[in-house]
Structures are given as C-alpha cells and as structure tokens.
C-alpha cells in the first residue's frame, strides 16, 4: 500500500463536490480521487496514485519507468486488489 502506482488520467468528473476521475494503470482502469491534485492536473496527465488517491503529478516518461519497475519487482499487489475489487463482491449488486 506504500508504493504509489502511476497512471494516466483518462476521465474527469465531479462527485458532489469531490474531484474524481478515471485513471488508466497500464490497461487496468479505475476511478480515483483527484481532489489533492485538481489544480495541477488535466486530462491526459500522469499521476502517482496511492490507494485510490492521486498524490503527485509526474511526466509520462517517469510514469512509464516507475510502472515497469513496479512490475519487475512483482510489487503490484495493489493492481491485483484493483482487479479483484472490480470483479469482486464490491461491484454493484455483486454477491456478498
């Protein structure tokens, strides 16, 4: 949960006053909170996401490099949670 995962902001939206968006992590997409970086970040920018929250903006080269290294380290447990959660019991109307 400590190492943030870099991803690309592909959608922006406002959820009752909270800046949210969809971030693409090397093909896995999920909704993330952009509230902490909203003044800095536009569509197409890359951000480092910690447990669903974008914390820092990075450039594309940096994002790609970090993502590759995380994959090499086998340290993408959070991506597994994302995938698991997307298909798992938390999905709307999913099983309990």
């Amino acid at each position: 949960m400590c190492l943030g995962i870099p991803g690309k902001v592909v959608e922006l939206r406002d959820d009752n006053g909270l800046a949210m968006g969809v971030v693409d992590f090397g093909g896995v997409r999920r909704e993330c909170c952009l509230a902490y970086v909203q003044d800095d970040v536009a569509l197409g920018d890359y951000v480092i996401v910690h447990v669903g929250f974008a914390i820092t903006k990075v450039d594309e080269a940096e994002a790609r490099r970090t993502f590759e290294v995380l994959k090499e380290m086998g340290d993408t447990a959070e991506l597994d949670w994302i995938t698991q959660v997307a298909t798992d019991s938390l999905a709307m109307g999913g099983d309990a």
Binding site: R30, C32, C33, V51, W81, I82, Q84, V85, L90, A96
Partner: peptide
Amino acid sequence: GDVRIVYSPLDALAL
C-alpha cells in the same frame, strides 16, 4: 465473517 478487500477507503464508504 464478512471481510472484504478494498483498494481505496472511498470504496468502503461507497459500500
């Protein structure tokens, strides 16, 4: 017990 993994605490709030 109903124990679930979430990626973000906002997932828990939505739940």
